[in-house]
């Protein structure tokens, strides 16, 4: 274990690329949780993993290949008018089967399949960093406009009747944003690492936050904290990054369980008058 490793210039680009992804994914996760669609992120991640591998076989860069698969999933979800979680489970199954079959039948696929599952952050390139930077800026700009529409559509479905076209574009735009985010996350942090960032910080933030902005801030803060801790732990103890990130997030969740904030759930008062 060498602390100097942490300051090695070789790891600056991977660190920055992952940090940007860790900033955005928890924010998307808050909205996914509010919309009860967090399973969509896992579906997009599986499709991104599979299409990233298939794209590589066709000579397409992994970030682009992953994005195409995730985008196809987003369009299917938005235009297909599916109800419930069925479509997300089908995405997971299709993505999982395709990933493992491609990995089993090609040498490069086998190597990259492991990389996508384990999250080989340290191989993130300048292309990853530029993609992450452009995506983060775009996501922050778009989310600032989309959040009011998405929250209103979820909480007050009777208020958006005259503006359904605006709402529809925001729903589609959000799906595309999640798909691209998961593609970027899967190709940099690994499939489960990206999903954990979408799921765990918002889960805790929903329990702790006293208001909406605090929920977004706590979620992003936990995501970034977990990412930095995982980066250091994985580098110092030479561990695969994806599982390390998931483990760190689970430790944070366990601490919350010990505090008793999460285990029993927030008690809703009885529907008495008040």
């Amino acid at each position: 274990m060498s602390w100097e490793t942490l300051l090695d210039p070789m790891f600056r680009i991977p660190f920055a690329a992952g940090l940007l992804v860790a900033l955005v994914l928890p924010m998307l996760g808050v909205l996914l949780r509010l919309r009860d669609e967090w399973l969509a992120a896992l579906g997009f991640a599986h499709l991104a993993g599979a299409s990233g591998l298939i794209g590589m076989a066709a000579g397409i860069p992994v970030v682009l290949g992953a994005s195409l698969g995730a985008l196809a999933g987003a369009l299917l979800k938005s235009l297909g008018h599916f109800r419930g979680n069925t479509v997300y489970v089908l995405m997971i199954l299709v993505g999982w089967a395709a990933t493992l079959l491609v990995a089993a039948n090609t040498a490069l696929g086998s190597m990259m399949g492991h990389a996508l599952v384990e999250g080989q952050l340290y191989f993130a390139s300048t292309a990853h960093l530029i993609s992450a930077l452009v995506y983060t800026v775009l996501a922050i700009i778009l989310l600032s406009r989309m959040i009011p529409v998405l929250v209103r559509a979820r909480m007050f479905p009777g208020l958006e009747i005259p503006h359904r076209h605006v709402t529809w574009w925001s729903h589609l735009g959000f799906d595309v944003l999640v798909a691209l985010g998961m593609a970027l996350g899967t190709s940099t942090l690994g499939l489960m690492g990206a999903f954990a960032l979408v799921f765990v910080p918002p889960w805790l933030a929903f329990r702790w936050a006293s208001h909406w902005r605090a929920c977004l801030a706590i979620s992003v803060g936990l995501g970034v904290l977990a990412y930095i801790l995982a980066f250091a732990v994985a580098l110092l103890w030479d561990q695969p990054f994806g599982p390390t990130l998931v483990a760190v997030l689970l430790v944070l969740a366990s601490l919350a369980l010990v505090r008793g904030d999460v285990s029993g759930g927030r008690r809703r008062p009885p529907p008495a008058s008040g």
Binding site: P148, M155, L159, H211, G265, R266, R268
Partner: peptide
């Protein structure tokens, strides 16, 4: 609409309802 978990306070709720 009343979800099991809603990290919005009353001010948020009225703000998003405009």
């Amino acid at each position: 609409v009343r979800l099991d978990e809603m990290p919005l306070n009353g001010h948020d709720y009225l703000r998003y309802a405009r």
